[in-house]
Amino acid sequence: MERTLKKYFAVFTVPTIIAFTISFVIPFFMGVYLSFCEFTTVVDAEFAGLSNYVKAFSNMDFLNALWFTAKFAVIAVVSINLFAFLLAILLTRKIKGTNIFRTVFFMPNLIGGIVLGYIWQLVINGVLAKYEMTMFADAKYGFWGLVILMNWQLIGYMMIIYIAGIQNVPGELIDAARVDGANPLQVLKNVTIPMVMPSITICLFLTVSNSFKLFDQNLALTGGAPSRKTAMLALDIFDTFYGRIGFEGVGQAKAVVFFILVAVIALSQLALTRRKEVEN
């Protein structure tokens, strides 16, 4: 077995490695290099030192976007995981039609972010039209619009992961707890949650990184309006890149900072929740 694996290792992995290198590794390192350059197109870059990084922080746009993103991420991560977990518990209760409900809740996840953004823009504007307003009247509408959108899109997906986790909790553990006199809440707290910690890790990781990297939904729903108050980090990078002549490098510098930030947050979250996982 081991030997055949070794023998065919190259056949199975080399195509993937080549694709990964072309579409990820090379662009990534090129991107880092370009953040130190001044360029219009990626082939005619001129080295410019750290000036792009200085410019990236010369106005408040990036920091405002960071603050907005952080607020959004906290609310979205908490609400998505809470609702997804509750739904998962409900839908593992052997209620009639469980499979239909699971499918229905999962479906929004199959629609692209841009489409969702425009759909929700119509919905929210339609509701606010009753009050002679649009979503751009105040940044708070855009903020809550984004939260609702992300919840709608991601709850079903996280729910599936939680369901997989909950179904894998050994029945004998729960029975034993019941025999010992634990009430349902205690079972949940002391048996189910510790046992689904791996699912929680994955779900938190996915929601945290998705919330920070959110772009399509933001672009389509608000486009940053009013006055860039609802622009998240990725959208700010995009606007920087295309908004001014000669600012391509600055956008690139912001993107590098953005990458480091997301990596640090996501990795520390992984390390934190991993520690709580138990072996069964």
């Binding site: 199959l110 489409v115 994955i202």
Partner: peptide, 21 residues
């Protein structure tokens, strides 16, 4: 392994999502 599969599917879906833009 289930989670990894889910993660892979998500990458594909996210990929589709951003491609639309």
């Amino acid at each position: 392994s289930i989670l990894l599969c889910a993660a892979m599917i998500s990458t594909v879906l996210v990929g589709c999502g951003s491609k639309e833009a």
